[in-house]
Design a protein around this nucleic acid. Structure first.
Length: 737
RNA sequence: GCCGGAGUAGCUCAGUUGGUUAGAGCAACGGAAUCAUAAUCCGUGUGUCGGGGGUUCAAAUCCCUCCUCCGGUACCA
């Protein structure tokens, strides 16, 4: 039996999952997992919350709670949303568990012992009052580059410059508000440069079968050359390293693993956790996690979004290789990004659909199936794709409900009304049909496919004794759908797989039309019985083929028959059967009792869609207004604003956003570099009177001196307009207050 | 600016290593049918394959150049 380990990128427990995430790393993985389970493969699908990192600390402080509260909140919210969405994780755990900490520490200890980690002493800010070092965003100060006074420790939000935090001017600890002191601290660096050649070979050995975007991005990183990267931080929240064997306890005190180092190891620790759980039920041994991570017969597939590529193609593989004995990903099928109604997902603009919100508005399982289907049909497999509500509606109404749902409904209703709720019994004239159907599929299976048409034409009359052209064509379509979808799934071409499956439902509708049982029920009841017998097989087969996409609907359909339900869900006791290929065979016996069917997919009305579209971009309740801090009158007076007339404006060479403005301030002339080139053409500005900050410390931008700052209003979504005096002919150089 | 990616039918997208009249689904139009949620089935495409140039017997596909869009990165005082 083939063995496949599947993981999806661990969602960060500091926010809610939205549809973009689902389309990127989760739904494809779930479909793949369900498909493989239905194909009789031995698989586990592992995922969970990533619960460490500075951002969680900061959120906790902002919300006046603890990191534990934050991760509990988001972990349980995301876990429950995923469950309702039909995700078939074998385990959805969290990196805050002890077993994870132990696993991460073991990796660290081993890499340390092997000499892959470098200890480096560096200067960092230390808050005496709080008694802690101040990593990244724990310190604010004036940007050394642009003098912005709320610049963070690692990067300035305003100008985007990166620098070493001790370069900040007037630094302040955001913990105590005190001015921090500079103190020496030790951090550990992983020497990724030592794996450059190994990783180049690794990437090139997969360059043919991996997606282009994945290979390209990995190559691009390798081309720049891998460098040493810090893998520890001074923080109280995370995997503590001070008790690791062989480490200097004093130096390691107060240090935790940098989140990117520990998060990817979550896949391993969660696998261990799963095996421990299964062991308590006698379904596995505790040591079995090694089978999944170290046995060469296991394939490892890591599903991610494109933002995670290098972590899974370079950094994690380097870690696994350094540790030794571990499998590297066989494939990293990264999706591109999903847009929403033509724009990027954005929480701050409320341009987003959180999974939990969808589930709240559309709690019925058929809507969840519809969402899965609509997303699957627009997976960003080769390029960024777009999700629109109208597309969701059309996919549901015109395809899922009209083609698949309608076939199931018309066939089952007809049978229920005309055959007393039982699968029709075949008459003497059709008694060979089930057997020949089986033989036909066996024949197809045993033949190499060059051309479907040719293959189908090669079937002799002997193999289809009781079949007419309709029966034969339908069986061919079914088998082709089973084959082609399977091959598409294995190539991670999910949209193609779903299309192939939908084509089977189309063929089934055509069969029903061509056989016209509503006519033959009177003219030729024996043929009518046969038609319905065939249709019932198709209903069951479709429920299996659709299971990776619409597991809830598949379950409802299969519940109509008195048979085991097969949706590719987690089931450790029934692993062997290859139900995927079995879907091509007739499996429902004559005279089987069937339950009364009901409509499977309801339509989505226009007003529902309209309401959802209107919700986008608007905030339901007034979000708590950010508290503006008051400043003193003196502070205001410190800023000298003056009117200025633009004499000349031109683009700064080789820059996208910068304009060089020559200004008349009455008594003097000045040059200002302004980042407005994307909003104003130079000639639009010439002659305008604007307002500038006159006493700003001069700075150099792109080699040009800038002596002030031009006032402009801007919105979160990037609109910008400059501020002008109400009377445009107002004298230049006038003070503004 | 640099590095990636993209630009194909009204819409959403396929087009594998260059090879016959460029495809699918949806929408639109015409027809058939009335078992079924007016749901189905059949038929219907004059697309400058972003523009221009080049290589080739042959280019959506390879090369050059320009334009537009999206990421990342470097300049948003």
């Amino acid at each position: 039996m083939n063995r496949t380990l599947i993981t999806s990128a661990l969602p960060y427990a500091n926010g809610y999952i939205h549809l973009g995430h689902c389309a990127g790393a989760y739904l494809p993985a779930d479909m793949y997992a369900r498909f493989l389970r239905l194909s009789g493969e031995d698989i586990i699908y592992v995922c969970g919350s990533d619960e460490h990192g500075v951002a969680i600390n900061i959120s906790a402080e902002k919300e006046n709670s603890t990191p534990k509260d934050i991760i509990d909140k988001y972990h349980s919210a995301n876990h429950s949303a995923f469950q309702k969405f039909g995700m078939s994780f074998d385990i959805y755990s969290r990196t805050s568990h002890d077993i994870h900490h132990d696993t991460a520490k073991e990796f660290f200890a081993d890499l340390l012992a092997k000499g892959y980690l470098l200890e480096k002493e560096e200067e960092q800010f230390y808050d005496n009052k709080a008694g802690m070092f101040l990593p990244d965003r724990y310190v604010e100060g004036e940007c050394p580059n642009c003098s912005y006074d709320k610049a963070r420790g690692d990067q300035c939000d305003k100008c985007g410059a990166y620098y070493n935090q001790i370069e900040l001017k007037n630094p302040k600890s955001i913990v105590s508000g005190d001015t921090p002191i500079v103190k020496k601290t030790t951090h550990w660096y992983m020497q990724f440069n030592k794996f450059q050649e190994f990783l180049e070979n690794y990437i090139e050995s997969h360059s043919k079968e991996w997606k282009d975007n994945v290979v390209q991005q990995s190559r691009s990183w390798l081309k720049q050359g891998l460098t040493e990267r810090a893998i520890t931080r001074d923080l109280s929240w995370g995997v503590k390293i001070d008790k690791i064997p062989g480490i200097d306890k004093d130096k390691a005190k107060g240090k935790v693993l940098y989140v990117w180092f520990d998060a990817v190891l979550g896949y391993i620790s969660m696998t261990k956790e799963l095996m421990n759980e299964l062991a308590t039920n006698g379904l596995a041994k505790k040591e079995d996690w090694k089978k999944w991570w170290q046995d060469e017969n296991t394939r490892y597939i890591a599903f991610i979004g494109k933002d995670n590529i290098v972590f899974h193609t370079l950094i994690f593989p380097a870690m696994l290789h350094a540790k030794g004995g571990y499998l590297l990903p066989d494939n990293v099928p990264a999706n591109e990004f999903l847009n929403l109604e033509g724009q990027k997902f954005s929480k701050s603009r409320n341009w987003s659909i959180d999974l939990k919100d969808f589930l709240k508005d559309f709690p019925e399982s058929h809507y969840i199936d519809a969402l899965r289907y609509a997303l699957a049909m627009s997976f960003p497999e080769t390029k960024d794709a777009d999700f629109t509500w109208k597309d969701f509606q059309a996919r549901n109404n015109n395809e899922l409900a009209a083609i698949f749902g309608n076939f199931v409904n018309r066939a089952m209703q007809f049978m229920f009304k005309n055959f007393n709720g039982k699968v029709p019994t075949l008459s003497e004239a059709y008694k060979f049909l089930p057997g020949d159907w089986n033989n036909l599929i066996d024949y197809f299976e045993s033949t190499e496919i060059k051309d479907y048409e040719e293959l189908f034409a090669s079937v002799t009359e002997k193999l289809k004794r009781n079949m007419n052209e309709n029966d034969f064509l339908l069986i061919c379509s079914l088998w082709k759908g089973v084959k082609e979808s399977s091959s598409a799934f294995r190539k991670f071409r999910f949209r193609d797989a779903v299309t192939e499956i939908m084509n089977v439902a189309r063929a089934a509708n055509k069969y029903f039309n061509d056989e016209a049982p509503w006519k033959s029920i009177n003219e030729n009841p024996e043929q009518c019985a046969k038609s319905l017998f065939v249709c019932v097989q198709l209903v069951h087969s479709l429920s299996i083929l659709f299971a990776p996409i619409t597991p809830f609907a598949s379950k409802r359909i299969q519940m109509l028959f008195d048979m085991p339900v097969l949706t590719g869900a987690v089931d450790y006791k029934n692993k062997e059967a290859n139900n995927w290929n079995f879907a091509a065979y007739p499996t429902i016996e004559e005279a089987t009792k069937v339950m009364q069917p009901s409509i499977i997919f309801n339509k989505v009305e226009d007003d529902v869609i309209k309401a959802q579209i209107e919700k986008l971009g608007s905030f339901e309740e007034e979000s708590a207004k950010p508290k503006e801090e008051y400043i003193s009158y003196e502070d205001v007076m410190k800023v000298k604003l003056r009117t200025a007339k633009v004499i000349h404006a031109e683009k700064v060479a080789k820059s996208k956003k910068l304009l060089k403005l020559q200004l008349d301030l009455g008594k003097e002339k000045r040059q200002i570099i302004a980042g407005v080139a994307e909003h104003y053409a130079p000639e639009e500005l010439i002659g305008k009177t604007i307002v500038v900050v006159a006493n700003l410390q001069p700075a150099k931008l792109r080699g040009e001196e800038s002596q002030g700052m031009m006032l402009a209003a801007s919105t979160d979504d990037g609109k910008l307009c400059f501020v002008t005096p109400e009377k445009q002919d107002f004298p230049a150089g006038a003070e503004v207050r």
